[in-house]
Simulated scan of single mutants.
Amino acid sequence: MTLNLSNQFIEESPLSVAGITFYIQDILEEDYQLQQISVIGEVSSAKLNSGNLYFTLSEPDNSASIPCAIWRNTLKNIHHQPEKGEQIIVTGRISLYPPRGDYKLIVNTVSLAGEGIQNIRYLQLRSRLEKEGLFDQENKLTIPKFPKTIAVVTSDTAAAWGDIQRTIKQRYPLVKILLSPTFVQGEFAPLAIVEAIKKVELDGRAEVIILARGGGAVEDLSCFNDERVVRV
């Protein structure tokens, strides 16, 4: 990244320590590229202090390192806590602490490097949607205890469709079951799922929607994590 400071005004007289520190802070914290970045590195040190986790990410040959921090309110939602010697991928933002004049990467997600970029994208999406309040309890609809009609959004050739019909008929035979068929795997699946759910909403009879498929590998289930599906 190249910064063009030709248009910035810097006084010829000496700057105060606070002046130059806050100037550097503005450059770092106002650069949007540094406010949501992913970094891969090896954890060379890690320690807890007052509920916050402080650690250092380094190059394997120790040619460069960056201090990192996970605040305690974020740490409780981190699925994997960094440990010394691990190769990890983190996402976060750059922040400068003026009293010491040092900068840190403030981390909000962590994953082992072997988990791949797909998991990083999933964690970034989940974090962004959580900040929007999409998963807040007050935004969730109440599921009726005894619905009269249930719509199932799945493939009409999937084993899951047969399993759902049998289970519902055994446990709650009075309910009416509707099928809104869709793809549940592949690049066209997210849009197809969205359209299938919208058809159920337009029909208006179903009080509950079941979106399902019969299991599979992580990559097979990725369509259910698509932002278009989450928002529908």
Score class of each variant (00 low, 15 high):
71 W>M: 05
72 R>A: 04
175 V>I: 12
90 V>N: 00
130 E>T: 13
29 E>D: 03
168 I>S: 01
42 E>A: 03
180 S>W: 10
96 L>A: 08
38 S>G: 08
41 G>F: 10
59 E>S: 15
192 A>M: 09
164 I>Y: 09
26 D>G: 10
68 C>N: 02
89 I>S: 10
183 F>S: 08
151 A>I: 07
226 D>Q: 05
4 N>I: 15
207 E>L: 04
10 I>R: 10
72 R>C: 01
45 S>E: 07
95 S>Q: 09
13 S>C: 05
114 G>V: 09
102 D>Y: 09
58 S>F: 06
217 A>E: 02
168 I>A: 04
144 P>N: 03
126 R>S: 04
10 I>W: 09
108 N>A: 06
63 S>K: 13
189 A>T: 05
35 Q>S: 07
7 N>T: 09
36 Q>D: 12
33 Q>C: 06
109 T>D: 03
92 G>Q: 05
85 G>C: 10
107 V>S: 02
11 E>Q: 13
223 C>N: 02
102 D>T: 15
96 L>S: 09
21 T>D: 02
6 S>K: 14
231 R>M: 05
162 G>K: 15
173 P>D: 03
126 R>P: 02
26 D>Y: 13
77 N>R: 14
175 V>T: 14
100 R>P: 00
218 V>F: 14
114 G>N: 07
69 A>T: 11
174 L>G: 02
32 Y>P: 04
108 N>W: 13
100 R>D: 00
229 V>P: 02
99 P>I: 05
62 N>S: 13
227 E>Q: 08
58 S>I: 08
168 I>H: 03
71 W>D: 01
2 T>L: 11
81 Q>M: 07
221 L>T: 04
112 L>N: 12
156 D>A: 15
127 S>Y: 12
24 I>N: 11
221 L>M: 09
179 L>M: 09
201 E>S: 06
216 G>F: 08
90 V>P: 00
2 T>A: 11
45 S>W: 01
49 N>W: 00
218 V>Y: 12
168 I>Y: 02
198 K>R: 15
56 T>D: 04
121 R>A: 15
170 Q>S: 14
140 K>E: 08
85 G>F: 15
107 V>I: 12
100 R>I: 03
40 I>H: 09
162 G>Y: 11
68 C>H: 01
120 I>W: 01
23 Y>I: 02
50 S>T: 10
124 Q>R: 11
87 Q>K: 07
161 W>Y: 13
